[in-house]
Design a protein around this nucleic acid. Structure first.
Lengths: 110, 110
DNA sequence: ACTTGATGCTACATATTCAGTAGCACATCG
DNA sequence: CGATGTGCTACTGAATATGTAGCATCAAGT
């Protein structure tokens, strides 16, 4: 079950390992974006995170967490569960506008 | 196989249909981010897009395209294949910094 | 010491999704 | 009439996600 996701290593659809491709592969897995989103407000325990994601199965949550931790985007704190790392915060900042965009998008389409 | 993805309709892990949840569900499907990324430079035909994504199977490409078109993020032009809509361009702009972030991320981890 | 509850996490069977290949129907070009 | 390019579907098998149960550990309470 070794599935390292790191810049420089080939990913699905791109053998070059270009960082952006690696990142898109990592974020383009089910629940990855959502997990980051839920952690953006505050750290959450495994179970709270599970609940925040609407009852996501622990299997896949654990898999995503392992990948995100391996990528240094999420880290396990002691006491308060999981949190975004400094890198994770920076990444989040890059698409923090998504929320507002989504709201405008919803208005436009209704 | 009707799978409408629109703000207001419930998605996996969120019954509320909050726009951001709908968007995260939509973008959090395999190849969705990558497709948007590849279309960001220029319009591409179905087959070129397929090649740009490293040989993604036409089945799933077509599925993603249908979803993105339904969401008005991608549109089919006549003559030159698929392109981002105005909405799609706006969305892209929200995470255009991803590329630079990914480059810095790669440096940090090497 | 013994329960009680919360933690992170694993096992396993099932359902859904994705991948990979082949090929169709249509259009354009020579 | 081929030959090529288009968007796209069918089909099978592989990979991934879901859903439920439950384990091991720890801290607090009685």
């Amino acid at each position: 079950m070794k599935r390292i996701i790191r810049p420089g290593t080939p990913v699905r659809g791109s053998k070059t390992g270009r960082p952006i491709m690696v990142l898109l592969d990592l974020l383009g897995r089910r629940w990855a974006l959502r997990v980051i989103w839920e952690l953006s407000r505050r750290p959450l325990t495994f179970r709270d995170l599970q609940a925040a994601c609407g009852g996501i199965s622990p299997t896949i949550l654990n898999t995503r967490l392992a990948e995100l931790r391996d990528a240094d985007i999420v880290s396990a704190t002691e006491g308060s569960g999981y949190a975004l790392t400094k890198d994770g915060e920076g990444l989040l900042a890059e698409f923090i506008g998504l929320h507002d965009w989504a709201e405008r998008w919803a208005k436009r389409r209704s």
